[in-house]
Amino acid sequence: MDQALNILTARLLAHRFIPRRDPLARRALVDEAFRESLERRLGEVGLRLLENPYAEHIAVALRPEMEDWVFGEGENWLSNNMGLPRDAIALLVVVWALIILPKRERQISRAEEIGDTQVDMFGAEKPIAHGDDVSVGVPEDAVYADFGRQLGGKMRFATNLGQLAKLGFVVRRNRMIQEGPLLDLMIDYAKLAPRIINGALAEVLKLSGTRIAVDEPVSAAEDGTDDEAGDE
């Protein structure tokens, strides 16, 4: 176990995230003893495992009690540890709402259709559906047309979108914005979704025809999702 644990820990630290279908990642999801050892190893250096049954990857983030020591306090505290400006964070939230909320609705609907209501925090052999059939991208031009002016104009939009892609939040293909490895891991669905569904952005999304998931069977404590965007 020690060698496998060393390899998985090193890969998580070096790559930030790995696919959940990876053999060692799957072992961490189905082998409780191995997962506990991994979490203990990460905890010894101030880190924690990020695992969301709805996401296609696993990753690592700082433990909350380490954030002040790493990122500073008071005036030195950053709104996020990725160095993103406010307009980039706003773009991240918009993209998350356009991609993850509809995806979550499709995943919940699919689970209900097959009668799968059991939540397995360690990952069942038949996990929740992932992939292109549930995660659908959005056109860059459409996002810019709807939100570009509010997000700083064409130059800022392109720059910030490139930064989000570089950090692993999104993937850009043929002028389509698609879900990146960290988009569904680094943002806490349980906290952000109600704010969007019940807030001002909900009206914008409704006008654009985007459906939003209103039922979430997995709490933040159960799915291990992070607290805020960029908390790595």
Rank of each mutant, 00 (worst) to 15 (best):
L5C: 02
L5M: 02
L5D: 04
L13E: 12
P19Y: 05
R20Q: 14
D22M: 01
A25T: 01
V30A: 13
D31Y: 03
G43S: 07
L47F: 06
L50C: 09
P64Y: 01
P64D: 11
M66N: 10
V70G: 00
V70W: 01
E73R: 13
G74E: 07
L78F: 06
L78E: 14
N81T: 10
P85I: 01
A90T: 08
V93W: 04
A97R: 02
A97I: 02
A97K: 00
I100N: 02
K103S: 15
R104V: 09
R104E: 12
E105C: 06
S109I: 09
I114G: 04
G115P: 02
D120S: 09
P127K: 01
D132A: 15
D133L: 07
D133C: 08
D141M: 09
D141Y: 08
A142P: 06
A145S: 15
F147D: 05
R149C: 03
G152F: 03
K154F: 08
R156C: 06
Q163C: 00
L164Q: 01
K166G: 07
R173A: 10
M176S: 06
I177F: 02
E179Y: 06
G180A: 06
D184K: 03
M186Q: 15
D188Y: 09
D188E: 10
A193P: 05
R195F: 09
R195A: 10
L201S: 03
K206G: 13
K206H: 12
S208M: 13
T210M: 08
R211H: 08
I212Q: 14
V214P: 01
P217C: 02
S219P: 03
D223M: 03
T225V: 14
D227P: 01
E228K: 09
E232N: 11
